[in-house]
Design a protein around this nucleic acid. Structure first.
Lengths: 264, 264
DNA sequence: TAGCTTTATTTATCAGTATAAATATAATTA
DNA sequence: TAATTATATTTATACTGATAAATAAAGCTA
């Protein structure tokens, strides 16, 4: 979509206008409003920095702060060079989880609370994708379980354990990727991300870790079978038990939520 | 907590250092890391703009972009004047919901999908706060139901309907405020916010709207009774039915999610 | 002491310059 | 001609200095 001049400069004209709040914030909001009104979509380009400065009659620095705001919100990407400038992008899962982690940074969240959420989210998701999985999805899931098994031959070192958890969790990511409900899928992915990257384990219970891994493999295998039969009831039962089981293992391994949620 | 000099300027020194990404982003990350390492908390003050410029040996504009980033992320508030400058704040629910709405802006979310989420979140939340509600919480809930009744005398105009929805939803906000799980509480509040501010109704079915309102009042009243008895089973049943009922009413009123999610 | 005024401090905005990075285009080479 | 290299152009990024606005604290007035 072509750029067709931003509408009347609602955020004030001339320097030091009377509007409320910071100029850069008002400009950022005006640009958002303009994007919505013109039904722009990801991939569409905004006017470049210089043009925006002309349109809004503001200083370069002010405009840069406005653009930085949109960038941090995950709404635009900025590139240099010819045909560069600010481009609208779909706010990514990644960016959104980063911002949501900021929220959790200053609050205490326990492993129990993560699983309280996960027990309802993963079960609902698992049940809801029944009938929506194309053959290649089943393949992917089966493949995933296979990787876990292959890796479990060597299980004596720390990084292997980490790798196993990675694999276990990607089973759930695959399921989430076939969930048509963005709210549900996002929550599921956010929770698996927390477990993947922000749980500090004590690695002094290797045997328990092995049990954990084996238990996961069993559940995933059974889930694949149930998905092949599209047996919704069975899937609900299995995923509920699976989450319960994961929670217990994580707790007995003394998993705690990291204090570095803010850092990517 | 006092400011005690930021650590070695890891984001590079001198102009145009070789680090990856933008200088302002690296600085923002360094400040985050420093906050975590020094276990700063909401209320603590960061060095002011000029001091930060000295510490990071960067230009004022660059530092302002870094601070804007932190501000947009909801991590700091900036005030002018003496004893002003950037102050750490708890990332607020409000800010987080704004950022999450950006995420949904470019995806299609249906009323059914909102309720798919709400049916599991509100039920889990309702059940989990049993036994955690102090007497004043019950009072608040009862009060809330009372307001709905009072308002339902005059129900002929649009804004009254909006006001009723407002009241109905604040019943759920009260419940959420007593939920110790930030993940659960946040999700619940986010969903009620969507319903409160971002559902466009067609107001051509006044009678259905009345039925909706009355139905809500009934459910809320019954829920209060159940909370007084701390009857968890009853609460689960009631809330499940309540959400199901809400969904049906919303659907028959042709509620659709607004296209203006990005705007506050 | 209550209310008002001044002053000092700090961010917010403006203006302009210089540098780096990315890309398109032209020139060169094989 | 195809591929590579050099050049020019476009754009963001970064730096500097000056002015305006906001606010807290100190001082003044009644």
């Amino acid at each position: 979509m072509e750029f067709c001049s931003l509408p009347t400069n609602t955020s004030g004209m001339g320097q030091y206008d009377q509007g409320v709040g910071k100029r850069s914030d008002r400009i950022a909001n005006d640009i958002k409003r303009w994007v919505i009104e013109n039904e722009l979509a990801a991939g569409d380009k905004l006017p470049n920095e210089k043009q925006l400065v002309d349109i809004f009659q503001c200083a370069k620095g002010t405009m840069r702060e406005a653009l930085k705001s949109l960038e941090v919100q995950g709404l635009i990407a900025i590139r240099t060079g010819p045909s560069g400038g600010p481009t609208l992008i779909e706010v990514s899962y990644k960016r959104t989880t980063e911002l949501l982690r900021n929220f959790l940074q200053f609050r205490d969240v326990s492993v129990e609370q993560i699983y309280q959420m996960r027990k309802i989210v993963e079960v609902e998701l698992a049940v809801s994708v029944v009938g929506l999985l194309p053959p290649e999805a089943i393949d992917k899931l089966e493949n995933q379980v296979g990787k876990c098994c292959a890796n479990s031959i060597d299980r004596s070192r720390r990084h292997v354990h980490l790798n196993l958890r990675e694999n276990e969790l990607s089973f759930h990511d695959i399921l989430a990727s076939y969930c048509p409900n963005p709210l549900l899928a996002f929550n599921a992915q956010f929770l698996t991300e927390l477990l993947r990257n922000f749980i500090d384990f004590r690695f002094d219970h290797i045997s328990q870790y092995e049990t954990f891994t084996q238990s996961n493999i069993d559940f995933h295998r059974k889930l694949v079978v149930a998905y092949k039969k599209e047996d919704q009831k069975k899937i609900r039962k299995l995923m509920t038990a699976h989450m319960e089981d994961c929670e217990q293992h994580t707790l007995s391994l003394n998993g705690t939520l990291s204090k570095n949620l803010m850092l990517s």
